Structure formats: structure tokens, C-alpha cells
Simulated scan of single mutants.
Amino acid sequence: MASMKKLINDPATVVADALRGVAAAHPELRVDHDQRVVFRGDAPVRGKVGLISGGGSGHEPLHAGFVGSGMLDAACAGEIFTSPVPDQMVAATKGVDGGAGVLHIVKNYTGDVMNFEMAAEIVAADSGTEVIAVVTDDDVAVQDSLYTAGRRGVGVTVLVEKIAGAAAEEGQPLAEVAAVARKVNANGRSMGLALTSGTVPAAGRPTFDLPDGEMELGIGIHGEPGRRRVPIANAAEAAEMLVAPILADLDFSGGDGVLAFVNGMGATPLIELYVVFQEVNTLLAKAGVTIARSLVGPYITSLDMAGCSITLLKLDDELLRLWDAPVNTPALRWGA
């Protein structure tokens, strides 16, 4: 077996080392290295709802790359593919509490959900701060997986963080910011595929075996099995395998069109993602679905996995306005 090739110092310190790099590269942010929490430099913002998220590392830029004006106020970094612990979430929640309450954006994985719930209970008992959690569960590939009860939270998580973040930046109250986050989750669907496995540094070998000539359809962001293994397909065939189940799960016609998000899983170059986007564009046009906004790039990854995911979000006037609102984070920036 070939030895692992990674630009790291030590598998045991890769998360801590990366957070030191984040702090050095983005002095506008503040990093609590003890708790492994990345904060907006101006957090807490008085009178503004605080938004936090977090999860296992290895999905960068999710979540720390989305900390900043118009998006998250803080992000907790767990070990690779491992939920942060409640103490981290407590530190993050208290650190962004500007007096208007805090929204937890939680991907639907058992450890994340349980630990965020525990943190919210601790914060409420300590300070009385109101905390509302919104759980993302947009993956149409499987109903239950190794890590979840119900659908997994995947690509829509990025869209929830951006759109709810814009609502909070406008000064909307906690209940309304949470309602916007729930609306995004309810109107978004995703599905992904893998061409190769990712390699967790501590393991030193691929997470799963995917033979040459095959791809995993409906893969999870931790390398969980998908719907089925199929022969390797070209971009047009692969896009149809992902788009068809999404369109079958929710009516995306009418309204103000959709946000179409083609996401890279970490090792797939942009040229391939744009080839896939063009195929998605063709498929949606045939289905009578109008693309109003687009996002293409590696925004929720799985280490060095090759593959992509497709997310569609049904838009209305409110969601369009909040999507277009200024955002200034390391990984997402416009109008600011």
C-alpha cells in the first residue's frame, strides 16, 4: 500500500496547527486555541443575534471559513470527522452572546445534535441566554446512515449559514432568524457522489475502498456509504444521477427560481465542477426550473475525496435578498 502523502507535521496536531494558520492568515478573526473556537474579531456584537456552528474538521472551509460579517459569529472545530465537545460549544455560545440570543446551526449527525443540545442547556442554566437550534437535513440519498437518525445535513448547511447570517446582520430577532434558517432547510435538497475515498491523517489510509471503474452514489461527507455503487460515469450521466432524485423529492418549479450549488468534495478541480454545473443547467432547463443564483466550488469538503455534490434551494424574494446581502468571510465574500 502506498504511504500517505499530506502536507502536515503530525496527524495528532493537524487541527491545532491548521487553527494557528487560520489565526495567522486572518487577523480579522479571533481564535481561542484552548477551546478551538474561531470568532469574529468584533464578537459579541451588541444587540445582534449570534450565530454559531461547528463540526468535525476535514470539511474546510466549513465552518471556520464562514466566520465573519454577514455569516457566522463563531465556529467550533472538532477533531477530524468528530463532533466538537459541549465545552467548545458553550465557549462559542457565550462568546457571541450580544444580548439578542444565539442560533445554533447543526448538521444532522448524532454527535453534533447531542453535544449542541447539551451546550444549550448549560448556557441556559448559567446565563439564561435564549438558544435556538436549527438542524439541517437536506441529503436525499439515504434516510438513515452510520452517523444519523434521519437525513444527513450537507450542502444546505452553507446556505443556511449565509442566509440566516444576513438576517441576523440586519438586526432581525432570534425567532425570525431561526424561521429563515428553517425555511432554507425546508426548501433545499442535496445529493453527492464520490470517485475516491478521503484519507484521515490519523488512519493513514483511505476511509473506504472504491475500486477503479466504480463510484459511490449518495456518499456522505464522512465517507459513509451511499445509495449504491455504480460504474464510473461521465459528467452528464453523473449530474443526472444526482439531479433526478433531488427533483423527485421537492417541486422546484415556479417561484423565483433556484440557487444551484455545485460543491467539490476536496480533490475535484474547478474545471470539472464547471463541467458538472453546465450539465445541471441543461437538466434544470429541461425540467422547467430556472437558475436564479449559483455557487460553484469546494465549500463543504471531505478531506481529499474526489467527487461532488449538488444542492438546489428554492428561492423567494426574501431568500434572494438575504443571499445577495454583503458577506465578508475567508471563504465567501461579496458586496462588502
Rank of each mutant, 00 (worst) to 15 (best):
E79M: 09
F277E: 13
M71S: 06
D316W: 01
L303T: 05
I132P: 00
L195E: 10
P269C: 03
M305V: 12
A179K: 03
Q172K: 15
G78T: 11
A77G: 02
T136G: 03
V102Q: 04
G55Q: 07
V289H: 01
E117M: 13
A92H: 03
M89D: 00
T282N: 14
C76V: 14
L72Q: 04
G68K: 06
K6F: 15
N328Y: 15
V123P: 05
W323E: 08
A186C: 01
E130P: 11
C308L: 15
R228E: 15
A239G: 01
R333K: 15
G99Q: 03
D316V: 00
A203S: 07
P211R: 13
D304P: 08
M215L: 15
G128R: 00
T301R: 10
F81C: 04
G264S: 10
P206C: 03
P231D: 11
G78F: 05
I105M: 06
V135M: 01
M305Q: 09
A167L: 02
G171H: 00
E121Y: 07
A18N: 15
D42M: 03
K5C: 02
D139I: 09
N108I: 02
G198V: 03
L259V: 03
D144E: 07
G150K: 08
P231V: 11
P206E: 04
A100M: 02
A74M: 06
R205T: 14
E214H: 14
G128W: 01
V296N: 12
G55D: 04
N115C: 13
L62S: 09
D317E: 14
H33L: 14
V200Q: 06
F208N: 07
V243K: 07
K162A: 05
N115R: 07
G226C: 13
V243A: 09
E169H: 13
A167G: 02
L193G: 10
V296G: 07
